[in-house]
Amino acid sequence: MGARLQADLADAHKLSMAVAFAKESALQVVDLEDWARQGGKLRFLAGVNFTLTDLSLLRRLEELPGAECKVFVSPDTRTFHPKLYILDKADRCVVYVSSSNFTRGGLTTNIEVSVRLEGPSSNSEIKKAAHLFERLFKNASTDSLTPEFEAHYRETQATRREALAQATRKSPLKPLHTAENLALRAPRDGEAKRPLILVTDPHNYQICLKNMVWGRQHERQVDAYHIGDVFFFHVTEGHGLAAMGMFVDEPYRDDALLWPAAENGGVFP
């Protein structure tokens, strides 16, 4: 795929690509920088699910003349997963519908499958691909890179690395992926949210799961949490990161005793 894409770039004046993941390593296979410096126009849309995309690649390409790079921030738990490459040439278009991400592995060493279409821009299948890319590139979930998003993305990457380092083969990763999507979406939905780590012992952790609530004795601590804040439960006694979640409602006071006073040395509403 990498060799074919590089060959097609030789006489293309425009490249539009939408991929799930993008890595700087791909530039060792397809030299987009040299092509863009010679006048090529690039539109690049990359997904940010699982925080696998190198934002440094997008920043690097964005500095080139005629290049526009964006990220697709999934509005829910779905993964942005296309691999679509469209090359405009003088008298025709080439479209790749592929399983290859813009990574060194996706373009060279992985086992991938790609379909290459070539024909005039008026061809119905070529037009469908072009229209699909336009819808993705101008979608409400598509954003330009901002310093705020980059900082939040790197925080989420660090949290993911910590969680994966402590995960076991039996640990379900779906909750982690869901939490990541919610965390990455936070800057789009208003004030950027920081990931929280809530520390509890195994007994209280089970109480939290049963009641779907996280309590504090001091109101000022509870008031520091906001709707949309993503949190990770760290359970003591060697359990590590055990669950991920999000605050979905305003804080409230409940005077019913959730924990017996004898266990905590005081009244705990």
Rank of each mutant, 00 (worst) to 15 (best):
S122A: 12
W259I: 14
A192E: 07
E155C: 10
R169N: 13
S141N: 13
L196R: 03
L136R: 01
L107N: 03
G106H: 01
T53G: 14
L184W: 04
Y153A: 11
F247A: 08
L173C: 11
A256E: 15
Q206W: 03
R160Q: 07
F80D: 04
R161P: 00
Q221F: 08
A151S: 12
R116F: 10
A158T: 15
M244P: 00
R59F: 04
L58H: 04
E62C: 09
P75H: 14
F268K: 07
I197Y: 08
E24T: 14
R135V: 09
P251G: 04
A129D: 02
G66W: 01
R43P: 10
D11K: 07
G105P: 01
N204P: 10
D189M: 15
G238P: 00
M17K: 07
T108L: 12
V30R: 02
F50M: 11
H203Y: 11
K128T: 10
R216F: 12
D31A: 15
K170Y: 09
A167N: 08
L176N: 04
D54E: 13
D255P: 05
L58D: 03
L198E: 02
A129Q: 08
P75T: 09
G266L: 10
V95W: 00
R92L: 00
Q38E: 10
H13W: 11
F72A: 06
A130N: 01
A140K: 15
Y153C: 09
V30W: 00
R161Q: 15
F50G: 05
F133H: 00
L9R: 06
G2A: 12
L117G: 00
A10Y: 06
F247N: 06
E68G: 05
K89H: 11
A165C: 12
E250A: 12
Q157G: 04
V267L: 14
T200E: 07
R60S: 04
S16K: 07
A163S: 09
A67N: 12
T109Y: 15
H13T: 12
H203G: 05
R78M: 05
I86G: 03
Q221T: 05
S141E: 13
W259G: 02
I126A: 02
H234L: 03
H131Y: 07
S56Y: 11
L136N: 08
A20H: 06
A224T: 15
E33M: 09
L209A: 06
K193A: 08
M212E: 06
A224L: 11
K23V: 03
L15G: 00
R160G: 01
D91G: 09
E63Y: 08
L52T: 03
N204H: 14
P65E: 03
S144Y: 13
V48I: 14
S122N: 06
